[in-house]
C-alpha cells in the first residue's frame, strides 16, 4: 500500500493505493499523523481491499479530525468497499462521495 498526499483547494487529499489490511493499517495511520489537517479527503479509488482494521483506522482518523473541528470525506469507493461501509453502517458516519472533485468541494 502507498499513500500520496496532494493539496487541492486547501484540502489534504490522501490518495491510497493498494490494500488496507492488518499489516498496512499502521502505515496509513502514520501518514495521517505526519501530515495532520483539518480538511481531509481520503481517496479510495485505487483501494482493492479493506478489512476491519482498515475501517477502524479510518474511524480513528475521522474521530481525531472531528475533535479538532475539522471535516473528512471519502471518495472513489469501489462497489465492494462501499458495501462494507453499508453493512457496518459506517456509511451513516462518513461523508462518502462518488468522485474526488465532489469530496473536495464538500470538505473545503
Amino acid at each position: 500500500m502507498t499513500v500520496k498526499v496532494i493539496q487541492r483547494d486547501g484540502v489534504n487529499v490522501f490518495q491510497v493505493n493498494g490494500e488496507i489490511n492488518i499489516s498496512t493499517s499502521p502505515e496509513l495511520r502514520k501518514s495521517f499523523e505526519t501530515q495532520p489537517s483539518k480538511k481531509i479527503v481520503v481517496d479510495l479509488e485505487k483501494v482493492s481491499y479493506i478489512d476491519s482494521s482498515g475501517l477502524a483506522t479510518l474511524v480513528e482518523i475521522l474521530k481525531k479530525t472531528k475533535m479538532q473541528g475539522g471535516s473528512l470525506g471519502l471518495s472513489g469507493l469501489s462497489e465492494k468497499v462501499r458495501s462494507l461501509f453499508e453493512i457496518t453502517k459506517l456509511d451513516k458516519l462518513f461523508s462518502i462521495h462518488p468522485t474526488l472533485d465532489a469530496a473536495v468541494e464538500k470538505v473545503r
Binding site: D51, S52, L55, A56, T57, V59, E60, L62, K63, L84, I87, T88, K89, L90, K92, L93
Partner: peptide
C-alpha cells in the same frame, strides 16, 4: 457495532462482518 452509539468504536467489526 452498527448501533449508533457504537459506530465510533474501533473494535468489534470483524465478527460482525
Amino acid at each position: 457495532c452498527t448501533q449508533s452509539d457504537n459506530l465510533l468504536r474501533t473494535r468489534g467489526r470483524g465478527v460482525y462482518l
